[in-house]
Design a protein around this nucleic acid. Structure first.
Ligand SMILES: [Mn+2]
Ligand SMILES: [Mn+2]
Ligand SMILES: [Zn+2]
Ligand SMILES: [Zn+2]
Lengths: 152, 152
DNA sequence: TTTCTTGTTGATAATGATTATCAATAATAA
DNA sequence: TTATTATTGATAATCATTATCAACAAGAAA
């Protein structure tokens, strides 16, 4: 087992789960990309090097990874869910999205997070108080037209 | 034709479309609710008084209404889309959402819009500049546990 | 090691939401 | 009236996602 895999192994173990080959490969695919892949797309990448791993297994494990807090599932308005590693060395940790309604490109950003975090904290506090609502998460997405689509 | 319907009629006409009975009924259902209904749920309400109107027609017209800028389609994480009149006398005009992950309740809010609008404007401007991205819309949703679910 | 228990997988079938087809019908224009 | 075009409802089809289930593999117990 590769060195870095030890960490994953332990993490799965803590949940009473096993660190299997399909899981390793799925995590590899997610770690290697900057994109926001759908289950199908992840499956295709997995399939190239490991044609024996099935689509069902991909779906199942994405759900597992979600429950473990390793990946997040998004919905950007095309007909499917898209997955992203929560901690990746290819992306900012917590970030929001710009979604181009033209070409469906998704842009990660975290460069105005100071203001955003401040705002979010404020709103969360006020909303929690007013509606007795315990906020655990949020989704912030801006839709519009990207550079390339504007030019075209 | 009822008085208020004249306005709708004209609005459809401007798009080269006709103000039909199914469309009238769908708009009626959307106007009368405070909820965030799915196509299926809208169909059920429509069906009660007009059993001849089909589900396909509901879907088709929701799409039409969306393109006309009369309704918005949301996705709150359960398996379907939910529709809301953009201008309603039962709801704040532009608003954001609190989504309870326990009971799936959706709470509209617009009571911190001053801060939010200010923040959104700022971020939009900065993002537009930095990524040459023309922002036309946004989605802001807070997820968490509502009052009732907390108590239970 | 052998056995036992339990998590995991892949193939397949099933589901559920949404769309495409298409012939019949209704509204508008000519 | 006639011609044109929009709309509808029934039906079948699609697409993403889940449920089933028997075969398999990892880890624990003996
Ligand atoms: Mn992202
Ligand atoms: Mn709402
Ligand atoms: Zn684009
Ligand atoms: Zn709740």
């Amino acid at each position: 087992m590769a060195k870095g895999d030890r960490k994953w192994r332990d993490r799965f173990r803590k949940h009473g789960l096993r660190f299997t080959e399909p899981r390793r490969v799925i995590l590899e695919v997610l770690s290697d990309t900057i994109e926001h892949l759908s289950a199908e797309e992840i499956y295709m990448k997995v399939h190239k090097k490991h044609p024996n791993i099935g689509l069902t297994t991909v779906y199942r494990n994405l759900y597992t990874l979600e429950r473990m807090g390793i990946v997040t599932k998004f919905h950007f308005g095309d007909g499917c869910h898209r997955y992203e590693l929560i901690e990746s060395n290819k992306k900012p940790d917590h970030h929001h999205h710009l979604v181009c309604t033209g070409c469906k490109r998704i842009i990660d950003y975290d460069d105005f997070m100071d203001e955003e975090i401040e705002y979010i904290k404020k709103v969360e506090k006020a909303l929690s108080r007013k509606h007795s609502f315990h906020i655990t998460d949020h989704v912030i997405q801006f839709y519009g037209i990207c550079k390339k689509c504007k030019a075209a």
